[in-house]
Amino acid sequence: MKYYLEFVREVQEGRIPPVYLFYGDEVFLHRQAINRLKAALLTGGAESFNLSEIDGEETAPEEVVRAARLVPVLAVCRLVVVRNIPYFDQKPGLGSELLEAYLDAPSPSTCLVLQKAGPVDRRKKLYQLVTRRGRAIDFTPLSAGDVARWVSREAKKSGAVFTREAMDRFLSSVPGGLQGVAVELGKVLTYVGEKERVTVEDVAAVVAPRREETIFQVVDAVGEGRFEAAIDGIRVLTAAGESPLGILAMLARQFRLLLCAPDLAASGLAVPEIAARLQTKPFVIKKALAQARNFHPGQLAAALAGLLEVDADVKTGRQDFFPALANFFILGFKK
């Protein structure tokens, strides 16, 4: 989040260049950054005259240049925001040449913001011109620590504080990206109302766990012999729209991780290398290595074979999904 805090500091100090490129996956912060520029530049009662918001996918580059060259009305600066720009992915043409000419000598009375979700080609002349005359900011996804600090700050604005357990549960349940985090945080803060402490029970009441987290919880319950809890977790997945066959595939993938990850770790591979081999994320491997201690390798190999039988029985109609899975859990993992 360092890049965003640096941007905020520059805006507060009035160091605003004539052109920005906002790109990268953290689009929630794109919007926050644009709002910061609006608050800093659009003052004096003539805001509607000095703001142009343009859809880059529907607008030719020459129209963007025309908007950027307009003179501000009763103000020092105009703000032109071009969202969803395609220009960094297109082949050079007349329109891009006009935009390149503008970026080489941008109007000092306009702040032009070019916004695009995802990556851009840094070899393009447009990108090089932006970095020469202004600033290009890659809005990379935040680390877990940064997300936790952001959640704490936003909750504090509403007079609420998360307990450590509640924060851990919240972060493990919310989708990636601050947009999803903000939506789920809003639900939690609405639910707790004027309460000062947000507990793990509060989070569990309104935030559904991610399917990956639910699968971990199901397999944890199986390893501990809590079969009713395992079935409850499966019901959570079906309520979230997962199909029975999709759930069986997720369970098979999880048991396969538990079988393979310890072997790779024993061979001397580090967690990131194991994650690359198994095509998943390092935090998933860390959890899998801890979870695998609840099972012996023979159980895991038998589980994979058992899931194939359940899959065949469900597909052919010999068994219904929930009874078949309950029998699989109890017969395969009873202590």
Rank of each mutant, 00 (worst) to 15 (best):
S143E: 02
A144Q: 11
G145I: 14
G145E: 15
G145Y: 12
G145A: 12
D146M: 09
D146A: 11
D146N: 08
V147Y: 00
V147N: 04
V147L: 01
A148W: 06
R149W: 05
R149Y: 02
W150N: 06
W150F: 14
V151S: 02
S152V: 06
S152P: 07
R153Q: 14
E154Y: 05
E154Q: 15
E154P: 04
A155D: 05
A155Y: 07
K156S: 11
K156F: 04
K156N: 07
K156V: 04
S158V: 01
S158Y: 05
S158G: 03
G159E: 03
G159N: 05
G159D: 10
A160T: 07
V161Q: 08
V161S: 07
V161T: 12
V161E: 14
F162T: 10
F162S: 09
F162N: 10
T163F: 02
E165D: 05
E165G: 00
A166V: 11
A166E: 10
M167K: 08
M167F: 04
D168W: 00
R169D: 09
R169Q: 13
F170P: 11
L171I: 11
L171T: 05
S172R: 12
S172D: 14
S173K: 07
S173T: 06
V174F: 01
V174I: 08
P175V: 10
G176T: 10
G176H: 03
G177E: 03
L178Q: 02
L178Y: 00
L178G: 04
Q179G: 09
Q179E: 11
Q179Y: 00
Q179H: 01
G180V: 11
G180F: 03
V181R: 02
V181C: 06
V183W: 01
K187M: 01
K187Y: 11
L189V: 06
T190K: 08
T190P: 02
Y191S: 12
V192H: 05
V192C: 10
V192E: 04
V192A: 06
G193A: 10
E194Q: 12
E194R: 13
E194T: 13
R197Q: 00
R197Y: 00
R197H: 00
V198F: 01
T199A: 12
V200S: 15
E201Q: 13
D202W: 03
V203I: 12
A205T: 03
V206F: 15
V207L: 07
V207G: 10
P209H: 08
P209C: 14
P209T: 08
P209R: 13
P209I: 09
R210N: 02
R210M: 14
T214H: 08
T214S: 13
F216S: 12
F216P: 08
F216R: 14
F216D: 12
F216Y: 14
F216H: 11
Q217E: 15
V218M: 10
V218K: 02
V218E: 04
V218R: 01
